[in-house]
């Protein structure tokens, strides 16, 4: 027997690395009571930290989609997805490839809008393709949809004008193409 056909132990590599980037997990679950609690509970029990979370229906009434983002610099994503797969109500998990994914967040910003500021806020809104959805004497509510970074950038533009309140959704995402 020639040892050449054997596997040299020194060539073996273990595959457990931190990816170092943000991950978007798209998780299809059975639409039943308590499923979100199981998923959220798993994250807290294993010490995984969810950055954003969005839950909603899919085209199938029996199936809901949980989209969550987490930091692959801190958590081994492989371990996270394997633990999630152990939940019986979890049907499918996709660790979405950033280059093949369209991901969007939505945010509402309530900005203090004195008369002299309004024009500038409206201008920013146009640049970011945001919409003014409510106008009152002292404030505007601006709605914006986009990538996580775009919304962050928009927020930093608005902030100097007096950001009164804001709310952001978690990221939702779909894979590009026809599959």
């Amino acid at each position: 027997m020639g040892t050449s056909e054997l596997i040299r132990l020194e060539d073996l590599q273990a595959s457990r690395t931190l990816s170092g980037r943000k991950h978007v997990l798209s998780i299809l679950v059975e639409n039943r009571p308590g499923v979100l609690a199981r998923v959220a509970g798993l994250f807290s029990r294993r010490g995984f930290n969810i950055d954003t979370l969005a839950v909603g229906p899919t085209d199938d009434a029996n199936v809901s989609r949980i989209t969550l983002t987490l930091d692959g610099a801190v958590h081994p994503i492989d371990q996270v997805t394997k633990q999630l797969h152990k939940l019986i109500n979890v049907l499918k998990i996709r660790d979405m490839e950033p280059s093949e994914t369209v991901a969007r967040e939505m945010a509402l910003f309530k900005v203090s809008a004195a008369v002299e500021n309004r024009a500038e806020i409206v201008q920013f809104a146009e640049i970011f393709r945001a919409k003014i959805v409510d106008v009152s004497r002292r404030a505007l509510i601006v709605e914006v949809t986009g990538s996580h970074d775009k919304i962050g950038a928009f927020e930093s533009m608005l902030r100097p004008h007096g950001l009164l309140e804001m709310v952001r959704t978690g990221e939702v995402a779909l894979t590009r193409g026809g599959d």
Partner: peptide, 14 residues
Amino acid sequence: IDPAEISKNVPVHI
């Protein structure tokens, strides 16, 4: 039998 045990505590090569 449990894939989540693989590399949970100790990185596994095979």
